[in-house]
Amino acid sequence: MGAEAEERPHGAAVVVDGFGLRGPRGWAFREVSFRAGPGTLVAIEGPSGSGRTCLLLALTGRMKAKEGTAEVGGLPLPKKMAAVRRISALGHVPGVSELDPAFTVAEHLGERAMLQRRFDGSVRTFLRRPSERRAAARARIDEAVAAAGLDLDALPKGERTSVRDLERLEALRLSIALALIGRPRLLAVDDADLKLSDADRAEAWALLRSVADSGTTVVAVCSEAPEDALRITTLDANATAPAPATEARAEDSEDAEDAAGAPGDGDKAGRGDTAGSADEADKPAGDLTEDTTEEGAADALAETGRA
């Protein structure tokens, strides 16, 4: 019982001061400063292509910032990126941590629980009887599914429902449940309100708010933040209005436009080109792919030390 209590999530405080990431095509984000206590719901708001996803990945130790400082759970970035990755988890991030449409819900949950036990389990866990390990894994799955509000019985085929048959909100709940199996101190979710109706959007924010209220710090990228969240705004490259201290500013409109990508490319424009720049800032732009792809985001993670 005591060991289980120690594994319970407790939110990681996030302290950011002048945080910025620059690549060969300009700044993905710059001069981001804010403070969020444990269990805070943080919403990164801004237009597509304004560096929202790059900021999300930098705060979770998946991308290496080039200026400023940040601490997550007392761990400094970018110095302790690996340690920050161990206490944070990614929910839905297109091109980085996506659900496999061919897998069933049960397969996703079972695989994540197995990986969690294999790579993050203590020696004591491996010494348990197989039946005890299975029971513990099932308990973790049930806990995460309940926290994500995913009603397995309401799915078309229950746990045997394929991901391709899930509604957008159900898929979001599943991705959050998978992340919560690891009992992270910080949960990161991209495109939290993308392609959701007003009713589903309200449910999504209620879910993220409940996760934060349970003790896990939540950072979510969105197009429009709810009023009760700590709002961090990334501005359009052409924005000229001054930004408060809690906003990410694109100060050089020409560089920022390059970082954001062409209009209409969305967040993936920033995710591939500027993400790859995390460790490649001194390389010419021609060394990176001109068109952003989902593979570009995975390559960016590999370049920062995480496959």
Rank of each mutant, 00 (worst) to 15 (best):
D228R: 04
G276H: 07
D267V: 06
S210G: 03
A243C: 12
V221I: 04
W205G: 00
T233F: 04
A206G: 05
T216M: 08
A243N: 07
D236P: 11
V218M: 00
E280N: 13
A248G: 15
T217L: 05
E247V: 10
P226W: 01
A278V: 02
T274S: 15
L230Y: 08
G286R: 07
P226L: 02
A204L: 03
L230M: 11
A237S: 14
A241C: 09
V218A: 00
A204Y: 01
A250F: 02
A220G: 01
V219L: 14
S210C: 03
D213M: 11
W205I: 00
R271S: 08
R249L: 06
I232F: 00
G215D: 08
A225M: 03
G261C: 08
D213L: 11
P284W: 00
D273M: 13
R249G: 02
G270A: 10
V219Y: 05
G270C: 06
G272M: 09
E257L: 12
S277A: 15
A259T: 05
A269F: 04
P226G: 02
V219T: 07
E227N: 09
P242R: 12
P226E: 04
G286C: 06
T233G: 01
D236Y: 08
D258E: 12
A220R: 02
T217P: 05
T274M: 15
E224A: 14
T246S: 15
E280H: 14
K283F: 07
A206Q: 09
E227W: 07
A241F: 11
P244M: 09
D267Q: 11
L208I: 04
A262T: 12
R209M: 00
A259G: 15
G264S: 08
E257I: 08
R271K: 10
T240L: 09
T246V: 14
R231P: 06
P284Q: 02
E254I: 13
D236S: 14
T234C: 06
D265N: 12
C222E: 00
L230R: 10
A243V: 15
A250P: 04
A275I: 10
D228W: 04
E224N: 08
T246E: 14
C222V: 06
T240S: 10
A220S: 03
N238F: 15
V219N: 06
G286E: 12
D282H: 12
C222K: 01
E254A: 13
